[in-house]
Amino acid sequence: MSFLKVNRLKKTFGSKIILDGLNLEINEPSIVAIIGNNGVGKSVFLSCLLNYLDSDHGSIQVLGHSVDDHLFLRTNTAFVSSDHQEHLYKITPREYFNLIISIYNLNQDASTTKYEKYMKDLELTKEMDSSFNALSFGTKKKVQLIGCLLFNPPILVCDEIFEGLDFEAVKWVKDTFIDRKRAGLVTLFTSHIIQHVEDASDEIYRLRDGKLSSHHLMKEKDSVYEV
């Protein structure tokens, strides 16, 4: 059974074709990066993948289940994206983490220790009781990521995760991705920062003309730098 299987995915906005028969299969614990020029449809693809957006055609399976299975999808995946943070507005990081603990039925004490440690690692302890809206761009992403790591889903999807993060946070995120892989989990992310893609990923795909193609960074380094 594969972690993720996308088959002939198609998405259009009016006459503009964004995804055109896109295929992707992830069969083993890994860190997968998706690169592509601005506006090529990376975020649209991730939104379709996690069923935040309808696709026009094709199928997506997560751990053998259709993405229409809402409960299964939300239990086994997580999404870190600055475009998907409305559910965190008006609440504090502590309230968000406690909500995750209740909804995913996690152990209260162990999870509290976990999120306190993560917040300390990322030097966010003083923001624990601040409103999410009042946090900076990068801090919002860190908080969202910590919330997702509390229930550590089999598939973690991050859109432009390194954008707006400080140097230490970037390192922390990369280490976290590696830990997840060791734990038998999949992390899929997009990034414009080629150095991070190179450092953090096992596999790189390039999205172009609505399709994903396997990308070999070293061979085509010059063209990748154009991204």
Partner: peptide, 18 residues
């Protein structure tokens, strides 16, 4: 119902602060 309780609390907090 722990799940319902946490959702009611979440909705309550967000609406009270909205």
């Amino acid at each position: 119902n722990k799940q319902l309780q946490s959702l009611v609390k979440y909705n309550g907090i967000r609406l009270l602060r909205n």
